[in-house]
Structure formats: C-alpha cells, structure tokens
C-alpha cells in the first residue's frame, strides 16, 4: 500500500488549525479566564445552577420554594449575562486572530484540493467542500471545509479539556454550539 502523500496539504491545514486553537485559548486565558472577576462569576453560576437543580427536583415543590426558585433563576441569568459581557473583550481579539489565520490559509490553499472526501457530499455541503475548486469531482475537498471541521472539533474539545467550556446552565448548549461560543 504505497501512498504518495498526495494530500499532505491536509496535514498542514490541521496543524495550522491546531496551533490557532492553542493561540486563541492562550489569549482567552490571558485576557479573561485567569482574572478573579471571571472566576467568581463562574463560581456563582455553578452554585446557582446546582441550587436550581435541587429546587427543581420533584421532591421539594412548595410555595416558598417557587419564590426562591425565581430568585435563583434571576441571579443565574444576571451572572450569565455578566459572563458573556466579560468574554466579549477576549472574543474580539480571538475573532481577529481567526480572521487573519483564515486569510492566510486562503492565500496558501486557494483553488487547491487539500484532501479527498470518502463520500459524495450533499449539495448543501458541496458549497463549502468544493469552494474555489475546478471541475465537478465532488469528492475533492477544499481548505474551507477542512478548516471548518478542524475549528469545530479541535477548539470545542480543547476548551472542554482545559475547562474553559461555558457552564451548561449558562450556555444551554443545544445541538449546535451557541454562536457566541464561537467568539470566545
């Protein structure tokens, strides 16, 4: 099985994405995660969400509890809003880095097939996976699609591993990560 490493560019895209993810998390740590205000905000959110879970559990349903429930919910909403505001600063810098790196990758791999897809993508995916490529071989993969896959899987897992992922109670992470999650 002699392989000619025809698609070594794919490795280049993945390693650049990995380095970018590390850089973005380092910036976020420098600007936000190590500050005491962020840490205290994070603790109050965790405390509030645990209290909320306890109050919401079926075992203690009473009038006085529902008042307490409302109070805890509002305090959770406030801390969550403060958390997003606090992240806004580092989010701007990180967004700048992502745009610069994307521009760099675009200039390096414009019109180049960086990888081969082991499946025929649906038209919706083709717009991204075949962007800037010639011909109609839909299994050719452009840098944009690979970079998209890298940035979602690598950054999300890196944030989770480093403990920078937003708290569940705040993000209410649905099937897709919240847009603002992409910013930090």
């Amino acid at each position: 099985m002699a392989f000619s490493l025809k698609y070594l560019d794919a490795l280049a895209v993945v390693s650049i994405s990995f380095a970018t993810a590390l850089l973005c998390e380092a910036i976020s740590w420098l600007l936000i995660y190590r500050t005491s205000s962020y840490k205290s905000l994070r603790q109050s959110i965790d405390r509030a969400s645990k209290k909320l879970d306890m109050l919401k559990s079926p075992s203690n349903k009473s009038a006085s509890n529902s008042k307490k429930l409302d109070r805890v919910e509002t305090s959770l909403k406030e801390s969550t809003r403060d958390l997003s505001l606090a992240k806004f600063k580092s989010g701007g810098v990180v967004a700048g880095v992502l745009i610069v790196v994307f521009g760099l990758l675009n200039s390096m791999f414009e019109g180049k097939v960086v990888a081969k897809l082991p499946f025929e993508p649906i038209p919706f995916v083709r717009k991204m996976s075949h962007r800037g490529l010639h011909g109609t071989d839909w299994t050719d993969c452009s840098m944009v699609f690979l970079y998209f896959l890298c940035s979602i899987s690598i950054r999300t897992n890196l944030q989770k591993y480093l403990g920078f992922a937003p708290p569940r109670a705040a993000a209410g992470a649905g099937l897709f990560p919240m847009p603002d999650q992409k910013m930090n």
Partner: peptide
C-alpha cells in the same frame, strides 16, 4: 444524547477524511 454530539461528529469526519486522504492516495 446530544451532549458532545456535534463536536464528535466533526471529529469523526475530520479523522475519516484525513486518514483516507493520506493513506490511500
């Protein structure tokens, strides 16, 4: 069931494409 689904789905696609491209071409 949706906890971590999208991240694992993109990770799966990334690894599949990467290994397929590097090993079989």
């Amino acid at each position: 069931l949706q906890e971590g689904f999208f991240a694992s789905f993109t990770l799966f696609l990334l690894c599949w494409i990467l290994v397929y491209s590097l090993v079989h071409f």
